[in-house]
């Protein structure tokens, strides 16, 4: 790799750090309740992805081998999903009367010339208030990115440093636009075939119900390879249409990462740990922030916190 030209002291400092530091090596010192809550929500999210199909499959299994090996599934009063009250992976979840639909799915239907379900309103409001929080808090692909980042650190320790290519920041917007145009022209919801959380939900479901994998497994494999060997969290940064949509919608979110200038020592750790190319150290945090607050947790002097954006 060619030595980059030095533009400022800060970025030179950052470059020097990047060559030695792997984001996964940074310890989240005082994430405290925020990080544990985030991990708990991510665990619940994965719990739903795996647990709901397992529960439904188990209920069906018991029903179909109920009486002397004779299927009684046909005579069930209602399906297991109806009796448990939970349907769907995180992209389209229903818990009892609470209906949620992913805004990306709703937009896809909208551009293809269909109507939008009322179930999209709550997720839409949440995204507009909290920004791109789905990516850091709920998306089942987020822990996979963490694994990929750890793998990058491991490989670097063995002397095989992976590239972290910086594509244009708006790449995901281009991906979103392209996919929506193809959705409108093709009349088929293809954006959801390139959207990792939806793909994960489907593949896990398929595995549990039919014991096999579909084409989505290949998509996930490519995403993981992209993240590991090309750009850290590259799928979330540059490719994911959902992340792009949430970035657009979260533009007016009142939350951001607030820095206490008096405490900050310009150590760059926050910038290095950020998977979303934000720069809390220079107060440049835009709607691309996924609210993971790793920067807050990694700061050695507690100079950062999640707070209200000042105009």
């Amino acid at each position: 790799m060619a030595t980059p030209t030095v533009r400022s002291t800060k970025s030179a400092h950052a470059r020097a750090r990047l060559d030695v530091l792997q984001p996964a090596d940074l310890r989240l010192r005082h994430g405290g309740r925020y990080q544990w809550l985030r991990r708990a929500v991510l665990t619940i999210s994965w719990g739903l992805v795996i647990g709901v199909p397992l529960l439904h499959a188990a209920t069906l299994e018991r029903a179909s081998h109920g009486l002397f090996g004779v299927s009684i599934a046909r005579y069930l009063p209602a399906s297991p999903a109806v009796t448990t009250g939970i349907v769907g992976a995180p992209t389209s979840l229903a818990i009892g009367p609470l209906e949620l639909v992913d805004p990306l799915a709703a937009f896809g239907v909208l551009v293809a010339g269909g109507g939008v379900a009322a179930a999209v309103i709550l997720p839409l409001l949440l995204v507009m208030v909290f920004g791109r929080f789905f990516c850091g808090w709920i998306c089942p692909y987020a822990p996979i990115v963490t694994v990929s980042t750890a793998l990058r650190a491991l490989l670097a320790r063995f002397g095989w440093r992976q590239r972290d290519v910086r594509l244009p920041r708006r790449s995901n917007m281009v991906a979103l636009a392209l996919l929506l145009v193809l959705t409108a022209a093709g009349g088929s919801q293809i954006a959801l075939l390139m959207y990792p959380p939806a793909v994960i939900g489907r593949e896990v479901w398929r595995l549990v119900y039919f014991g096999g994998l579909g084409s989505g497994a290949a998509v996930l494999g490519l995403c993981f390879a992209f993240d590991t060997f090309y750009a850290r969290a590259g799928t979330c940064r540059y490719l994911c249409p959902g992340g792009a949509l949430f970035t657009l919608l979260g533009r007016w979110s009142p939350f951001t990462i607030v820095r206490d200038r008096a405490l900050c020592t310009d150590c760059t750790l926050c910038d290095v740990v950020c998977p979303m190319m934000q720069s809390p150290m220079t107060d440049k945090v835009d709607a691309g922030c996924d609210r993971c607050a790793r920067c807050v947790a990694v700061c050695p002097v507690k100079a950062l916190h999640v707070g209200r954006r000042t105009p």
Partner: peptide, 26 residues
């Protein structure tokens, strides 16, 4: 155009009659 591939229909099917295309054609 309308199907968002959320798999909900199959999840509530009490006889596992609904299955999904693995076709490479998106």
């Amino acid at each position: 155009r309308a199907c968002i591939r959320c798999y909900r229909c199959a999840e509530v099917c009490p006889v596992k009659a609904i299955r999904f295309d693995t076709s490479i054609d998106p």
